[in-house]
Every structure is written in structure tokens, then in C-alpha cells.
Amino acid sequence: MAKNTFSSAFRKIDVDQYCEDNYREDDTDGGPTGPDENEVNSLLQKGKNLDALKLVLTNAPLGSKNQQTKDNALTLTLKVLLSIKPPQIEEAVSQLSPELLDVVMKYVYKGFECPSEGSSGHLLLWHEKIYNQGGVGCIVRVLSDTRRA
């Protein structure tokens, strides 16, 4: 067994740097460029909040390397999430496929990360409804996925 020492410097040595077959992330083909802001806004104005929700989630640029695209999508998605009134949340969640449930859960957690006035309380309601449908697996997939919102 290894001896206990107080030195932990060895942990910082990158022993893998001389291997040529290190793990590399798959190259992504740019990924989706994110949802169309005008289209989403016009859907919101017409009161079609559920359609707007599906639109932002299916076009979510989770694999994108462009931080600006991701930030725009996040702002837009949070706007849609917050525009859906608490009594409608359950209906909205029930219409989402398992894949989209994972995506919306990612945005809920991201929303907790950068809160605005009154947003966290609203997102907690979303969290509760998504959890009821997707179970704890939904949360695990937010944690384990390398493509963040």
C-alpha cells in the first residue's frame, strides 16, 4: 500500500501528457445555431407559450462551442419558462418527450445559477413538475452530460 505523506504535489503531475492516444472529445459539426428569437417572441406574443417552449428546447444549442449563442439561447429559454404561468406548467411538462425533459431540466438548473427577480421560485415549480415526470434520472442526466446549457 502507498505510504501516507503530506505531500500532494504528485497529484498535479499530468502523467498522460506523453500518450498520443489521449481521450479527445468528438468534433461537433457546429451544432444548431440556437432558436430563432423573432419566431419565439412572436409565438409568445400570440400567447402560444407551449409552442414557444418546444421551439426553444428542440433548437437548444447545447453542443455549441460559441458562448454567445449559448447565452442568447439561455436568456430566451428562461424568458419562455418564466412566461408560462404556474397552473400551466404541469400541462407543458406532460407534453414534452423524455429527450426534451432532459433539456428543460438543464435550463432550470442553469436558471438557478443566474437568478433574476423572482425567477428561482418559479423555476422550483418547474423543477418539481419535471421531477415528477422524469424522476431522479432526469437530474442525473443534467449532472452527467458534457453538453451544458
Binding site: 422524469g134 431522479v136 434520472g137
Partner: peptide, 11 residues
């Protein structure tokens, strides 16, 4: 062909 099922359980 692959099938994936997202479960509601812990891993």
C-alpha cells in the same frame, strides 16, 4: 440499430 431508454432511476 440501437435503442436507448432514459430511465427515472439513479444510474
Amino acid at each position: 440499430a440501437t435503442i436507448k431508454m432514459r430511465t427515472e432511476f439513479l444510474p
